[in-house]
Design a protein around this nucleic acid. Structure first.
Lengths: 100, 100
DNA sequence: ATTTGACTTGTCAATAATTGTCCAAAGTTA
DNA sequence: TAACTTTGGACAATTATTGACAAGTCAAAT
């Protein structure tokens, strides 16, 4: 269960690439990439997809990490975190049905 | 499994109060309150607590609805919604341990 | 048919939150 | 030490959210 940042860093290091190289290829600032890898900034969905292409990995792997990071970050300091997540699941489910 | 808006409306109606009465008591615009009850705008945490006091209900009931609404809204259009929520649970759990 | 009262809708400015950039500092390696 | 990689922090830019106001709908009453 890793954060998106951890995953991105693993992929980069496994290929022996430098931040500056990846950053150049993805047309972003090196410092920003560094922050992404340390989960200090969150990329947007589009950027996540670009990472997936660049590292040649399944987009869902990255998107799942990205989305769950966002959710976890949002509830992290809440006492009701766990219950709220359960309730959210039900709401998502309910809403999906309504849409049909 | 109701939204915060639905809950707020139920409480107001059960007391036979008008939007403008509640809005006045809570020092907010009637239109804004209307939006809260229809889940068009999300109140902040403080406002939720104020609602709890005003309607004399358990704050957790409202906070849970509020938080789960926020989460559900965030993942609603994502294919990976369900998986992401599960993953977020684990992440919250992991992170809690790390803090200790 | 007009008025009244309750609620809703749309728009806009203000505010807040997040993101991206730049540069300096810190850490690494040779 | 020198060259290079990575990180931190401050600030600008962008994006999202909020609240206020005016105008609108609808139903019931007159």
């Amino acid at each position: 269960m890793n954060t998106l940042g951890q995953i991105l860093r693993e992929h980069r290091e496994s290929k022996g690439l430098l931040l500056r190289q990846v950053a150049a290829a993805m047309e972003m600032d090196t410092a920003l990439l560094s922050k992404f890898e340390r989960d200090e900034r969150k990329p947007n969905k589009e950027q996540v997809l670009t990472f997936a292409k660049y590292y040649n990995v399944n987009a869902d792997e990255l998107l799942l990490a990205w989305l769950s990071d966002k959710i976890a970050g949002e509830v992290q300091n809440e006492d009701l975190a766990k219950e709220a997540l359960k309730a959210a699941e039900k709401k998502v489910e309910l809403f999906k049905r309504k849409k049909k």
